[in-house]
């Protein structure tokens, strides 16, 4: 038993990507990305070429996990929103539908108010998309996607 897995399909991926790209524009953001709570990157949009998004994703997930742990100690529900203000850049972190994390990085060309507003709208769209995705994942016809992989395939991966 290796916990339930997340599966991402082309259709939903494109929809999620679209939401991210729209959010970059609407919020005047530098970068928008979505990760799952384990720190796996799901989608990225904006000027991310020079950004170590893998590191950011795992650190954000760690941060959310730690904050979630604090909430538990305080017998709170999770803290759904976080905001970190830097000298030049700011990070807005939002938990969406209790399952994924939406991160927006922005600078003085935008404002916290605008980001908040646009994040709220994007969250609604994302929640709907992820609900559909979860339904799809539970469809038995869609499940066990890696069945065709053989033991030899796995062995070959390690024979170098």
């Amino acid at each position: 038993m290796a916990g339930p897995q997340i599966v991402m399909y082309e259709e939903e991926f494109n929809q999620i990507q679209e939401v991210c790209e729209k959010l970059v524009k609407d919020a005047n953001a530098i970068v928008v990305f979505i990760i799952d709570k384990n720190g796996q990157l799901i989608a990225t949009a904006g000027e991310y070429e020079n950004l170590d998004t893998t590191s950011l994703a795992s650190l954000t997930a760690g941060n959310i996990a730690a904050t979630g742990g604090m909430a538990k100690v305080l017998k709170e529900n999770e803290f759904a929103t976080q905001f970190h203000e830097g000298e030049h850049q700011n990070i807005h972190i939002q938990i969406v539908g209790q399952r994924v994390i939406l991160v927006v990085i922005f600078d003085e060309r935008s404002s916290l108010g605008l980001v908040r507003l646009r994040v709220r709208k994007a969250s609604q769209s994302l929640t709907e998309i992820f609900e559909r995705l979860v339904e799809k994942m539970q469809d038995p016809n869609m499940a066990a996607p890696l069945e065709e992989i053989t033991d030899d395939d796995i062995d070959n991966l390690f024979n170098d």
């Binding site: 399909y9 082309e10 799952d36 996607p145």
Partner: peptide, 15 residues
Amino acid sequence: MSFINYSSREINCKI
């Protein structure tokens, strides 16, 4: 919880 992405054709696992 592994993450299988059909769009980018990636399997992600956590050890």
